[in-house]
Design a protein around this nucleic acid. Structure first.
Lengths: 224, 224, 224, 224
DNA sequence: TTTTAACCGAGACGGTACGTCCTGTCTTATT
DNA sequence: AATAAGACAGGACGTACCGTCTCGGTTAAAA
C-alpha cells in the first residue's frame, strides 16, 4: 500500500503492524456496527492506534473499508475439480462463503453505493475487489477450453463481452440471493445456478420457440 | 348513531402534500448528494417542511430512502409483447432503466447494506421494493404457461424455488452490471441475458458433459 | 383578568375554572421543575387544559409566572400587633414565609431577571407583586404615626424617598438572605433586621463620628 | 524513574484565549439578548469558537453565566477613604456600578433563580460571586476597628451573624433597588442607605420605644 | 327553537435550540 | 518523521418546546 521507500530516509518508519491491526479492527467494527455506524475514531481505538495514524494512511472511511473488505477476497482461488461444472460450483461456493460473513455483507454494498458518486472509489473497488473475482471467470474458461469442454473463442471482443455477462450473472445472483433475498447460497442453490448457466451457454433449445424439453435432465426435475 | 370517524379524529390532520414533497425531495437529494451525504435536515428544507414533520412520519434516513426509492418501482409492469422472450426483455429493460437513474443507484444498495444489520428494514425493503419486482416473474411465467411456452408446474415448492432463482439471477445481474461493473444494461446486453436464461431453463445440453452444441442457433454464434 | 364584557356577547364564555387550574399548575410545575425547565405544554397538561387555552389568556411564560407568583402575595397583610417594631417583624415574617416556598423562590427572581429586558413585564411585576408589598410599608408608617411612634412627614417627596429606601432594604434583605445566602429568615434574624432598621431611622449616633454606644441595648449586646 | 510530567499533558493543550473570548462573548450576549434568549451556540459563534469547545469547559448555560458575571466582581475593592461611612459608601457605589451594567442585571438574578433548584450551582455562585463581596464587609469592619470607629468583637459567632446581616442588607438593598424598583443607586441613595445602616448599628434609640429623636442630625434632615 | 360565535381538546405544523457525536485538522510531547 | 494524546472548528444528529394553525365538537347567549 505504501512504497518501500528505497531512498526514504529520516524519521521514524511507519509501523507495519498498524496496517494489519487497523484493517482487522475495521472488519470487527463492521461486524459489530455495520457500515453507517462505523466511525474512524472507534476503529482507531480498537486497533490501539491514534486517529492521526489512520488518517495518514487512508483518505477516509470508504477507502479503508474497501481495503478491509478487499482482503477477504484474497483467499478466492480456482481449484481444479475436474470439470467445468464442478469448477464453477466450487468457486461460487467460495464466493458465497465470503459474502456470508457479516463484515463483507455490511461493507461491500455500502461502498458500492458510495461509489456511484465517486469515480476514484469506483476504480479502487474495481482493482481491489472486482478484478480479483473476474479473473477466476477468465481462468475457468481457459481451463475448460484446455479440457475441450468449451470451444476456443473466435472473436476476442465477443469473448470479453460474454465473460462480463457471466461474471455479472454469477456475482449478481449470489449477491442478490445473499443480501436482498437474505437467504444462504446453499449447495443446492449453487448447483441449480450453475446448471442454468451452463445449459444456457452451451445448449440450444429443442425448438427455436414455443416448445420445451421433455424428459428428465440430470438429477431429475427441470428447474421450472 | 356513531360518527363516521372510527379511528382518525382529533387534532389537525397530517398534510398529504407533505409526504409527496418529502419523498420527491429525498430523491432530489439522492441525486445531488448520494446516500451518505444526504441529511434529513436538508431533505426537510428542500421539501419546504420542518424537520419534525419528517421525523413524525419516518423513523430515520433508511426508512425514508426505502420509501422514496420504492416509489420508483411503482411504474414497473409486464406488457404483453407476444412471447416469453420478448416479455422478459421488456421488463428487464424497464428495470434497468429505473436502476440507471441516479436516485435509485445511490439509494438502493445503501439501504440494502444497512439492512444487513436491521431486520425491520430488511422487511420494509422486501415489501416496498422486492416483492413489486418478484411479482413480475410470477406473472410472466403464468402468462407463458397460458401461451403454452412453458409447461405447468407439477410441484409448487419446486416452482417457488425456481422463481426465486430466476429472480435473483435477473435482478442480481442487472444490479451488478449497473452498479458494480458500472456499465449500462443496453438492449444487446439484455438480449444476451435473456437468451442465456431461457436456454438454460428450457433446454438440455446436447451431451450431459464434455461437449458443446455445434451448428447455428438462432442468430448464429454461441455466446462463448 | 378579563373585562366583564358588558357588551361582549355571543359565543361560549371562557371557563373560569381554567384560570385557577392553570395558575395552580404553574406553581406546581415551578416547585417540581424550576423556572427554566418549566414548559407551557407541561403546565397545560397538568391543568388538564389544551395549550391553546393557555395561550389565549397569557402571552407567554413570563406573564403566566408573574400572575401565578403574584397570587402568593395576596395573603400579605398588616396585622396590628401594638407597636411599630412588632408590626414590622410580623409583616417581614409573612414575607419571608412566602419567599421560603419553592414556587416563589424559583419564579420570582427569574421573572425579575427577565424584566431587565422587557419593560412591559417590569410594569406587570410592579403592579402584580411589588405594589402589594410596598403598600404595607406605607400603611405601617401611617399606623405608627397615628400611634405617635413616628412624627408626621413634613415633606411628601422626602417621605416617598424614605419609604422606597425602607422597602428596598427590607425586601432586598429578605430576598438576599433567602435566595443568595440560602438561609432561612428566622425570627431572630428578622428581629435583628428590624432593630437595625428602626434604630437607624429613629436615632442619632451618640457622637457624630468616632465613637459608639456603650452600655446594654435591649436584650444586651450590640449587633456588632 | 518516572517522567517529570506529574500532571500529565499528552495532547494539544487547551487554548487559554478561548476562555477569555467565551466569557467576553457571554457578557456581550447577555447585554444583547438577556439570559433566557442567550444560546450557547450564539455565544460560541460570537467567541469564534466551536460549540464543543464551550461544552468541554462548562457544563451548561448556568455555569458559564456565573463565571462570566463573576469576573465583573473582580474589580471590587475596598479603598481607604478615611472613615467607615466613606468606605461603605465607596464600596456600595462600586457594587451599584457593577449591577447597573446590563450584563450583570440580566445574568445575576437569573442564575440565582436557577440555583434554587441546583445545589452545585448555588455553591458555585457563592464562591465565584458572593464571597468576593462579603470579604469586603469583613475587611471594612476590621479596618474600622483598627481606626477605633468600632469596638472589637467579643463573640466570634455573633460577629459572623452580624456580618451576614449587614451583607444581606447592603447587597439586598442595592439589588432590589436596581432590579426590582428599577432605579439607579445614586450617590444620594447610597448616602441614605449608609446612614441608616451606621446609625442602626452604632446607636441606641433615645427612648427604648415610642419616641423619636428630635432636632437635626448631621447634614440636616432625618431620613423619614 | 335555531343560529351563531367564541370557546375547547387534540395534535400537526414551521421553527429554533439543545447537547452529543463524528469528521478531519491541528498542536503538543515523545520515540 | 512517525507516534499517542487530545483539543479544535465544523456540521449533522434526533429531541424538545415554542407559538401558530387547523380540525371536530361544545356551550350559551342572541335571533
Amino acid at each position: 500500500m505504501q512504497s518501500s521507500s528505497p531512498a526514504g530516509r529520516a524519521g521514524r518508519p511507519r509501523s507495519a503492524a498498524a496496517d494489519t491491526a487497523i484493517l482487522a479492527a475495521t472488519r470487527d467494527a463492521l461486524v459489530d456496527l455495520g457500515w453507517s455506524k462505523l466511525t474512524l475514531g472507534d476503529v482507531a481505538t480498537r486497533a490501539g492506534v491514534a486517529k492521526t495514524t489512520l488518517y495518514r494512511r487512508w483518505a477516509g472511511k470508504n477507502e479503508l473499508v474497501v481495503d478491509a473488505v478487499g482482503e477477504l477476497f484474497d483467499e478466492l482461488e480456482l481449484p481444479d475439480r475436474g470439470s467445468l461444472a464442478a469448477d464453477i460450483e466450487g468457486v461460487v461456493l467460495q464466493f458465497a462463503a465470503i459474502l456470508a460473513r457479516p463484515e463483507a455483507k455490511s461493507g461491500l454494498m455500502a461502498v458500492v453505493a458510495e461509489s456511484t458518486h465517486d469515480a476514484a472509489l469506483r476504480e479502487r473497488i474495481r482493482t481491489s475487489i472486482v478484478e480479483r473475482q473476474k479473473r477466476l471467470v477468465l481462468e475457468g474458461r481457459a481451463r475448460a477450453q484446455d479440457r475441450g469442454e468449451l470451444p476456443p473463442e473466435p472473436d476476442a471482443a465477443e469473448a470479453a463481452r460474454t465473460a462480463d455477462l457471466i461474471f455479472d450473472m454469477v456475482a449478481g445472483a449470489v449477491v442478490h440471493r445473499t443480501l436482498v433475498s437474505a437467504e444462504a447460497a446453499s449447495g443446492d442453490w449453487v448447483r441449480s445456478l450453475t446448471q442454468v448457466l451452463l445449459w444456457g451457454l452451451t445448449s440450444r433449445p429443442a425448438e427455436s420457440a414455443g416448445g420445451w424439453a421433455q424428459g428428465g435432465g440430470p438429477g431429475g426435475g427441470a428447474p421450472w
